[in-house]
Every structure is written in structure tokens, then in C-alpha cells.
Design a protein around this nucleic acid. Structure first.
Lengths: 247, 247
DNA sequence: ATTAGTTAGCGTATCTTATACGTTAACTTT
DNA sequence: AAAGTTAACGTATAAGATACGCTAACTAAT
């Protein structure tokens, strides 16, 4: 998504690796792009949501803006995780051509700030995204991408896995209320492992920032699970200040 | 340090937070700068080692280059930890003037990639640094700095503390051979805590990547300690792939 | 020479946390 | 009413963290 209406800084861009979780799959938000391949033929492929920053724009805010334009959401969990600037990162002529035509400027070299974002996919924000040529694609079925975006996704995923192990961010991918089992599945899918449900429950309930609601699942063909919500406030208060080391 | 001899990209710079450890103090490498203050008077202050990147330069390599010019060292532990680009980060007129005069260009806005580096301070690289107007300053006695460099240092220090807890990087700040006590002191100073020496020793020797040498301290007024060295190879082989989570 | 002062380096006892796995409870479908 | 499924609690054992006692080996002071 390139901003034609505003003056851009053609040296610096933001790219967002946006994760979502639905039907027990980790998904990523990709944009379908129309471009001319090296032989000049019209073609289509996918790219990450991203944009050049405008002249006096804050980097973080540029990422927020990009995602808001795409999903309608403006309070998304969003963090910078890398800054990528190898001169040869845009090595395909067709990609460079695409930048030149969409911006109407002579693009030389683009350094990009990579952000990763966590979204709870809903019908509403999903519809919004589809209207902008964006769609949620299973992380295991990502097609060939423009630029070096495949590489950025891989680094974003590694970052997600590391963060998930060290901070309570899984909740950002779930709705307000969720079951322990849903949370566990999320961990299993993202970390690509199997966890013992009894131990998972024990460990995650021991810290008391998961609040049990008065509401159960209905219509499920088994003992219905209670819904929980995550209380960030309680977490922030009691997060342990571990001194020492772990390696 | 600004490169007059080469064509620079005036939009993007690298800044390095370089840590060293000596006489039980965590130190940081700062450069003394001459500038004109807002009233036009000559003045001096300090800044981080850093530079604009050149036109076709890789960001990481720009950081390597900057440090090599400054210390003579070319294989330094060096990692990008942030990318900073608020439009108002260079808010002082004197700083902007300084950029314009040292580069001879009209600088608008600079986005900087922040790196953090770990160096074992030696007489040789210290002398080299002094010749380039650089000096090692105790992290607790950092004076007022140019630009937003104080902020970058704070973020770099937080990054150092986090990394030190999760990866064996403390060795990068010590000479090839060191005693367990020296290593412990390093942890205590950087993490700002007291550690039990018996437990520290037990924990760090359990993993067998610390190799005891055949050499003891000499001339110390107490039982002499054995020297050890860190074997990165052994560490890489056996670092645990922990699945699950920690928070 | 002997003693005092200092840090190195090993060991043990206890508390906390992780892991493995057994069992009953509560719902739907057949 | 029985079968199938997942929720939710509990227990036993292994592994790791923490607290702290003690002897060893050196120099400096007496």
C-alpha cells in the first residue's frame, strides 16, 4: 500500500508481519499485489503490509497507520523487531520497477523497519482487510512473496516464538474471553510442540492473572470449559524481577 | 565521526553503544565532540560512536566500520538492538548545525540504527581509541550527551542486562582467560545485584563450556584462583531448546 | 615462624518448580 | 443408557534454586 496523496520519504519504510490465530492455525496477513514481471507481463503475487514513511512521520506511528488503513484497528499489539537495510535486499528488477511506478519517484535503496503485530481475527476486521486486497494465510502455506518479505516473515516468526516463551502475549491473539484449552493450542501451534494439558493448566493458573469468568462453553460435545480473561494489570504488578541468569 | 571522504546517505546513520568492563566497572566508549552552542560559542561535549552510512553500505557493516576506525578491532561482538526515528529526536539547533557543518550537506531528518557492542578493554585498543578522541567512561558517570544519545545508552543498557541473563555473552567483556570471581563480579555490576559465590560457581560450572586452565593467579594475597576460558563451541552444541514458557 | 586476613572452592540440607501420569466430572451423540 | 470426548483436579517423583557451613591456599603483619 503506497501513499500517493502524501509526500513520502523514499529511503525508509515499515513492513508489518501481522499474526492472527484462527481455527487452530497461525495465520499471517498478506496483501495481493499486481505488478509487471521482468518480461513486462501483468502478474500477481503477495507482499507484507507496509509503506514508506511520510516526511515527518514517526516510525512506530507509520506502522500503526499502515495497519489501521488495512484492518480498521488502531490499538494493535505492535513492536519493532528488526531494521533491515542490506543494499541488495531489493534485487529483483520487477520489484524496483513496481516501487518506481507506485510512488512516482526514483527509488534508490530502501531501509525498512520490521514490525510484528498480533491481532485477534474477527469477522469485522477480516472483512475490512479483504476490502483492501489483504487476506489471512496459514503460516505454513505462504506463497512466494515480493521483495525479501519471506525472510522478514521468518525472522518475525522466530521473534514471536521467543516472545511467547518469555512474555504473556498469547492473549493478544485470542478474543477477550477464551478457554485454557484454546490458549494451550495457541502455544502448541506457535511453538510447534505438544504440551501436557494438566501441567499447562497448573503452570498458567498458578500465576493469578487469568481470571475465571462465570461463563461456560455451550453446545460442545464434552464437559464444557470455563472461559477466562487475562488481567494485564495483575500481571504487570507481579511479574517477577528475576536476577541471575538462564542459559 | 563523520566521513567526509565518501558519499553518505544523509537519512540513515548507525550509533554504537559500546560496553567494556575494567576495574570492576561497566564502562562505555564515548567520543568527545567540538561544536558551537546556540549562542555560537565553541563548546565540547560527548556523543556515541556513530556515523552516517555510505550510499551502498550494509547497516551492519557500517557499524563494524565505525568501530574499527575507532578501536582498530574488527571482530567485535555487535548486535542491532533498536531503530530510532522519531522526527523530533534531533531537537537541538546546535546538534542540527553540527550535522550540517560536519557533513557539508543539508540534513533533514536522521533515522538511526542502534547497535550494542561488547569489548574486552586492552591497553592497545584503549590507546587506539584515545587517539580518536574516544574514552572509556564509567556508566554511572556519563555526562550530558549530544542528540538523544543518553536515551540510546539507557536502552542499550537494558538490552545488555536482558541479554546477559539469557545468553552467555559476559565472556565477550573479559580477556581470554579469567577467574570465576571476575565473571561473577561482571554479572553483579551489570545486573546490579549480589550473587552467592558458591551457587554462582555451581550453576556456571554445571554446564561444561567453562574450561579450567592449568594456570592460577599469582601474587594475590589469598588462595589463588584458577583461570578459565569460555568454549563457545561446546555451548552452541548443548544449548537447551526449551519449549514451554517462562513468565 | 606464627598468626591474621582474605578469597577459592567443595559440600549438604531444604525449599521450589517441572514433569509424568492417574482419575473423576460434565457435556453431546448414538 | 452407553459411548465418546474434553475439563479439571490431584499425586508422586525428579530436577533445579537457594541458603549456608566449612576447609584450602595464598600474602602481609607481628
Amino acid at each position: 500500500m503506497i501513499s500517493l496523496g502524501r509526500t513520502i520519504n523514499p529511503h525508509i519504510s515499515v513492513d508489518c508481519v501481522v499474526f492472527g490465530f484462527s481455527t487452530n492455525q497461525l495465520k499471517i496477513l498478506l496483501i495481493e499485489r499486481e505488478y509487471r514481471d521482468d518480461s513486462g507481463k501483468q502478474a500477481r503475487d503477495h507482499k507484507l503490509p507496509g509503506d514508506f514513511i511520510t516526511l515527518n512521520e514517526d516510525l512506530d506511528l507509520a506502522a500503526v497507520r499502515t495497519l489501521e488503513e488495512l484492518t480498521g484497528l488502531n490499538s494493535i499489539y505492535l513492536h519493532q523487531f528488526a531494521f533491515i537495510g542490506q543494499p541488495e535486499r531489493i534485487w529483483k528488477k520487477s520489484d524496483m520497477d513496481w516501487l518506481n511506478t507506485t510512488t512516482g519517484m526514483e527509488i534508490q535503496r530502501v531501509v525498512t523497519a520490521a514490525y510484528f503485530a498480533l491481532i485477534n481475527i474477527t469477522e469485522s476486521n477480516s472483512d475490512f482487510a479483504i476490502k483492501n486486497n489483504a487476506s489471512w494465510i496459514d503460516i505454513k502455506e505462504v506463497p512466494a512473496l515480493a521483495f525479501d518479505h519471506r525472510n522478514i516473515i521468518d525472522r518475525g516468526l522466530a521473534h514471536l516464538q521467543k516472545s511467547l516463551r518469555n512474555e504473556p502475549i498469547g492473549f493478544e491473539l485470542l478474543p477477550e474471553k477464551f478457554t485454557i484449552r484454546e490458549l494451550q493450542s495457541l502455544y502448541e501451534v506457535i511453538l510447534d510442540c505438544n504440551l501436557d494439558n494438566r501441567n499447562f493448566r497448573k503452570k498458567i493458573l498458578k500465576s493469578n492473572y487469568l481470571i475465571q469468568l462465570d461463563e461456560k462453553q455451550i453446545g460442545v460435545a464434552h464437559k464444557p470449559a470455563f472461559y477466562y480473561r487475562f488481567d494485564k494489570h495483575i500481571y504487570n504488578k507481579q511479574k517477577k524481577e528475576y536476577l541471575g541468569f538462564n542459559f
